[in-house]
Design a protein around this nucleic acid. Structure first.
Length: 382
RNA sequence: CCCGGGAUAGCCAAGCGGCCUAAGGCAGCUGACUGUAAAUCAGCCAUUCGGAGGUUCGAAUCCUUCUCCCGGGACCA
């Protein structure tokens, strides 16, 4: 905190807003910071399987930034949302155990590896938040009263569902619950990947319509939560249409995000070095002639490696030109585009860089029997 | 509770009494080719058709029953 005290409002705002895909309500941020109000952040995570780099690193990278900016960070372990979405077999007691066991450990280890403070990170379990909490349920109804069915239907389509596919009614309760979570946790900053923007936008739209638990600033004025959305890492697979239509690039990137249900698309935070190398070797990595607009390996270099390391070292055999070091993503992308870096050398470099970045996380899971046991319990549920 | 439709591999899906130790597609796996992946080519991938009975020389295919899913209706003091 002493470090925070030395940061100017501008510096804090810059830390909060950096490396994001978008900040909704950016213009409200300086005023909020100037009030010296203790800021609260929230990111809600459904307990739905092994932690991949999108959750472990992309989310926690931002948490680290926020902590440095003096924001109190909260991970909301959404066990009810897991239940609603039929994940992990629906055994609620086990979901809870996995949430507070595996998920918490994995996220703390990831945050620590990225230079954040895991001890300062607050974890709130959905079940605990909802238990005997009238204000929560009242807010859920208030949010629902101020949202239309059409809007809810639109917002659930992002949960990986296809049009026309039949769903049970509980799925419709999911988005308003997510919105209520934000207000009941009194989060000034709602954080998630780009796939979370619909729920966050609803939260902002209803913010001024709530009477039970509105969000207020230091002067008691009702305010909207600021929504920050990080980049969704590309999965390592080839997209369905290739080459990609530049017009559709944005939606394709969302559709092609890393996913735990497509094991080839994702690297998990505790993958072994050999697993990481194998996945990288199989990754879709189009040659420079095809452009670099859609290249998962470069995407990871930009969003994971250069956000956490000064450089990327490329080990190369002498006959292929010898070793290389890149100091920035721009330099790397330029070299790749010009054909000065072979895809395989890029992959090798990325494998080793990721292995190094994840080394503390892997050790955390390997060294302690009880943590390994949590991981084993989760694997058994998949 | 009633009527109707359905249940075939991870997913989609053909077959509707013998040629089914079940077509095809997607996904996946292995190999070839590329100094990566992709693309392409070759190979592998359900002894079994939601469960249990029965009819028959013979059933995924017909009958009975149970379970589950979908659509609709009924109930609504």
């Amino acid at each position: 905190m002493s470090q925070t005290a030395q940061l100017s409002t501008e510096q804090r705002a810059a830390l909060i807003a950096r490396n994001l895909e978008e900040v909704i309500g950016a213009e409200e941020l300086p005023a909020l910071l100037a009030q010296n109000l203790p800021l609260r952040h929230y990111i809600g995570l459904e307990i739905s399987g092994k932690l991949h780099l999108g959750t472990g690193l992309m989310c926690m990278q931002k948490v680290r930034d926020l902590q440095r900016a003096g924001v109190h960070c909260i991970v909301f372990l959404a066990d009810w949302h897991t239940w609603i979405n039929d994940k992990l077999g629906g055994d609620r007691e086990r979901i809870k155990r996995v949430a507070v066991g595996y998920f918490k450990e994995g996220l703390k280890a990831s945050l620590a590896a990225l230079g954040g403070d895991p001890e300062a990170l607050e974890f709130v379990l959905g079940s605990d938040l909802y238990h005997h909490n009238d204000v929560y349920w009242e807010t859920l109804i208030e949010v629902s009263r101020n949202t239309t069915l059409n809007r809810i239907l639109r917002s659930i389509s992002i949960m990986g569902r296809n049009e026309g596919e039949s769903i049970d009614f509980a799925k419709l309760i999911y988005p308003p619950m997510q919105v209520a979570d934000i207000f009941i946790l009194r989060a000034n900053i709602a954080h998630g990947g780009m796939d979370q923007r619909k729920a966050h936008v609803i939260a902002r739209d209803v913010a001024h319509l709530l009477s039970i638990a509105p969000l207020r600033d230091a002067h008691g004025k009702v305010i909207k939560p600021i929504a920050i959305h990080h980049h969704l890492l590309l999965g390592l697979e080839k997209p369905p249409q290739w080459p990609v239509d530049p017009e559709k690039l944005r939606e394709l990137r969302t559709a092609m995000k890393m996913s735990k249900s497509k094991p080839r698309s994702a690297v998990f935070i505790h993958d072994s070095p050999d697993e990481i190398r194998a996945k990288m070797r199989k990754a879709f990595c189009p040659p420079p002639a095809d452009g670099i607009a859609f290249n998962p390996v470069l995407d990871w270099a930009e969003h994971l490696i250069f956000r956490n390391a000064q450089s990327l070292f490329v080990p190369r055999a002498p006959e292929n030109g010898g070793n290389l070091t890149f100091e920035s993503y721009e330099a790397l992308a330029a070299a790749y585009s010009e054909g000065g870096l072979h895809p395989m050398d890029l992959k090798n470099a990325m494998s080793e860089a990721l292995i190094a970045l994840l080394e503390p996380v892997r050790k955390h899971f390997e060294d302690r029997a009880e943590i390994k046991a949590m991981w084993a319990e989760l694997e058994a549920m998949l």
